[in-house]
């Protein structure tokens, strides 16, 4: 029974949502919207579960002085500090309903002075990793790899202002060989064709997976198969 009820709920809700695509009448019309709101509400409550888990795991690590337990102190202190200054709007407008990002609030200061640079730093790692991955992966080992290499080359040059100067001397009749034009062509045609093919496959995969879930063949929300 513990398994059957969730499967029945999944089937009913899944089928109703599919029907809602074709029936604009109430109650179907607002089903998608209302369920999205319910999802958000559940997600908010689930956050307590996540936050609780984070605290439990790291406090245990500190208590038992497990490997790298010092990092856990940073995590716990950081988590509680941000939670408190955000919740109580420290330094911001009085009252709990004000804007937590208001000018002068501690939360805003932490957001701009700590969170912003940390995020930008993590994202900027991409520039370094793109270089090392390109150096390792773009080798003309096969015919396919050579085509990939040439395409990468054109895009890399074409997506910079240098690409414009590189072939700007070409006569107008040969404009199609201009590097930025070639880069745009690769992005607009072969890339789009490939993307569309992958997207069609993905869409069909999503439909098949969704049907498996609705029909109860696949039920990860219950914890693996029967």
């Amino acid at each position: 029974m513990r398994r059957r009820i969730p499967i029945i709920i999944t089937f009913i809700v899944g089928t109703a949502l599919i029907m809602a695509m074709f029936i604009p009448h109430t109650p179907f019309s607002s089903l998608d919207e209302n369920l999205s709101v319910y999802f958000d509400i559940i997600a908010v409550f689930a956050f307590i579960l996540g936050g609780g888990n984070l605290l439990r795991v790291h406090l245990e690590k500190i208590q038992k002085k497990k490997r790298d337990w010092q990092f856990s102190i940073v995590t716990v202190v950081g988590f509680l500090f941000m939670l408190i200054i955000g919740f109580f709007k420290v330094g911001g407008p009085p009252g709990l309903s004000g804007d937590f990002l208001a000018e002068g609030s501690w939360f805003r200061f932490m957001f701009e002075a700590v969170f912003n640079p940390l995020q930008a730093t993590m994202f900027s790692l991409l520039a370094f990793f793109v270089a090392s991955a390109a150096y390792r992966a773009f080798r003309a080992k096969t015919k396919e790899a050579t085509i990939l290499l040439i395409a990468a080359f054109i895009i890399l040059v074409g997506r910079t202002p240098i690409g414009h100067y590189f072939t700007s001397w070409l006569p107008k009749q040969l404009d199609f060989l201009h590097v930025p034009t070639l880069a745009s062509w690769i992005m607009g045609w072969p890339n789009t064709a490939g993307q569309r093919a992958i997207m069609i496959g993905i869409a069909l995969g999503v439909i098949a997976t969704s049907l498996r879930i609705i029909l109860g063949i696949e039920r990860p929300y219950l914890g693996a198969e029967k």
């Binding site: 559940i42 997600a43 689930a46 956050f47 307590i48 579960l49 996540g50 936050g51 888990n53 990860p220 929300y221 219950l222 914890g223 693996a224």
Partner: peptide, 11 residues
């Protein structure tokens, strides 16, 4: 994600 935590743990 917290909801993924619950589902993945159960799985």
């Amino acid at each position: 994600r917290s909801m993924v935590l619950a589902a993945a743990r159960e799985t």
